Amino acid sequence: MSTIDPDVPVLPLLESDELRAVRAAVREICERFGHGYWRETHERGESPDALWQALSEGGFIGVNVPEEWGGGGLGMQGLITVGEELAAYGFNMLLLVVSPAINGSILARHGTTEQKERWLRGVAAGTTRIAFAITEPDAGTNSHNLRTSLRREGGKLLLKGQKTYISGVEQADQVLVVARGVNEDGSLGLPSLCIVDVDAPGFTRDRIPMPYLGPDHQWTLFFDDVEIDEDRLVGGFNGGLGPIFDGLNPERIIGAALACGGGRLALEKASAYARERQVWKTPIGAHQGVAHPLAKAKIDLDLAWLMTQKAAALYDAGAQAGEAANMAKYAAAEAGIACVDRGMQTLGGNGLSIEYGMSDLWWGARLARTAPVSAEMVLNYVAEHSLGLPKSY
């Protein structure tokens, strides 16, 4: 009789009682707010603070953070359950990606004891919200071309540069900024991670107008010699490269979970409509031209969710999760888009109406193909790292 090595990641085919309880509790919170909450909050130009507070009080924002720092101790498996269920109700919460998934993971693995006490406990409780800033106008997905700098001058650390398409800064208390340390010869070194208060002198921001339906905004950030204390560096000066990837893999995993949740909601709406809508003598769902595309979308979505769970299990076990995280993000984005597109086609003209809510799902689904990493860059990664093909960029 074989035994399972306890150090080997295991992916259960059935969700545990604990995760099922998490899912049910998150759904109950969502139902308290109702399906109209996301659009209404967006139209009022408000942040979803009430929902965030309810999730925080339930212990669901920091469900991935280790228990010793006030979290739920369920790792990324717990957080993808929360994220997928939120998105399956229509609440595609981007701040869940950056605060607990990216920054919570980085601080848990690389923060000092003092940094964990100061920031990670708050992230776990949902009382501290930290945005994440890496993308720059002239760098795009080429993180090696970042120009935001952190230099020593007169006994101070000064942050200078610009970031763009940074999510949820209006809701955040701090931003974890990726900069490059300036070496003694003036050249730019390896990445450094620094925690910056949103009201720090020299830190300004401009909102980027977006068609995306959701209360999370996008921002361009400007840092004009913002003073950074040494104890705000995560990983130390020029020591942020490893911590960055311990944040970017969770970003891809939770992004995949949100895409899966949105796809699930689209299929639920489309299937319910196809069971009831009659144009001739039978419901339109009886016609294979409607049923088969929905069935295919369901298969692709379930496969994407399985890869998302695998990526989460690998990350939680401390194993190499980069390949699975990228594959999960790619598969979930494509599956989510297909579910929403097929849902809109199933509903016909009603698929474009606000009343039926299907068109509200489009921007969140389509966003997943581009961010947090584009589909093309995922394919580049898989071609090079999984298939051993020559680097193409």
Rank of each mutant, 00 (worst) to 15 (best):
E170F: 03
S2G: 09
E136K: 10
R151V: 03
R32Q: 14
G83S: 14
V177P: 04
G343N: 05
A365Q: 01
R366S: 11
I61Y: 01
G242R: 14
V26D: 02
V123Y: 02
P9S: 05
G261V: 00
L233R: 04
H287N: 13
Q218H: 13
A311P: 05
V10F: 13
F91D: 00
F222T: 12
A200R: 13
G59Q: 08
I208P: 06
F132T: 08
M210W: 11
I130R: 00
E15I: 06
F132C: 07
P137A: 11
A87T: 01
D206L: 08
A313T: 10
T135Y: 13
P243V: 02
Q77H: 09
M76D: 02
Q278F: 07
P137V: 09
F245A: 05
P137Q: 12
L51M: 09
E170I: 00
L294K: 06
S392T: 15
N326E: 07
D5E: 12
D185I: 11
I134T: 08
R32N: 10
L96K: 01
G255H: 08
A368T: 09
A25M: 03
G155W: 03
I195D: 04
D246L: 04
F203D: 03
L120R: 02
G202A: 08
I244W: 14
G161S: 10
A312K: 05
L14N: 11
L301S: 04
L213P: 04
I284N: 10
V98S: 13
A324H: 06
S392Y: 09
V290P: 03
G155P: 01
E230P: 00
G34Y: 07
G255M: 05
E68W: 06
T141M: 13
Q288V: 10
Q218A: 14
G336T: 04
P201F: 04
I61D: 00
G70M: 09
D7I: 06
I354N: 11
L146Q: 12
V26Q: 02
A270T: 03
T164L: 03
K163G: 01
L55M: 08
S56P: 02
G236N: 08
M210F: 12
A133R: 06
W362K: 14
Y273I: 06
L159K: 03
T148V: 10
V8D: 11
Y273M: 12
L176W: 03
I61G: 00
D5G: 09
L13N: 11
M307A: 11
L213K: 11
I354W: 12
T282Y: 13
A25S: 15
G202V: 06
A125C: 03
I254D: 00
K281S: 14
A270W: 02
L306Q: 13
G73L: 08
W280L: 15
P211K: 12
L146P: 00
H144Q: 14
W119C: 00
T220C: 08
T164I: 14
G62W: 01
P209V: 07
E43Q: 13
E227L: 04
Y393N: 14
S2P: 15
G289S: 13
P390I: 06
Q320C: 01
S149N: 10
A54D: 06
T81C: 15
W362M: 11
G318N: 05
N183L: 15
Y381S: 11
G111V: 00
G122D: 10
V279Y: 12
G247S: 01
R180N: 14
G236S: 08
T308V: 02
E114G: 01
T127H: 06
N142H: 12
